[in-house]
């Protein structure tokens, strides 16, 4: 069962990574406009030039 001492920290670490990623994406405003994001993905060719950089 010694493998647990590696697997549990790995599982927790991955979970925390996910949590951190979510909190980061929330902070950077990615959840502010969910409808818009869906449409932007479709029309990526005619986005304004500053977004293409």
């Amino acid at each position: 069962m010694n493998v647990l001492f590696i697997l549990i920290p790995v599982a927790l670490g991955l979970g925390l990574l996910g949590l951190a990623a979510f909190l980061w994406s929330m902070k950077s405003g990615q959840f502010d406009d969910l409808d818009g994001a869906a449409w932007r993905a479709i029309s990526d060719d005619d986005l304004p030039s500053e977004d293409k950089k």
Binding site: D33, L34, G36, S43, D46, P48, E50, D51
Partner: peptide
């Protein structure tokens, strides 16, 4: 896209972002 692109071409405008929600 039309609004954002249209405003993007105006000199002086640094950012134009439409929140669709």
């Amino acid at each position: 896209a039309k609004i954002e692109k249209g405003l993007g071409t105006v000199p002086g405008i640094t950012r134009a972002r439409l929140n669709f929600t």
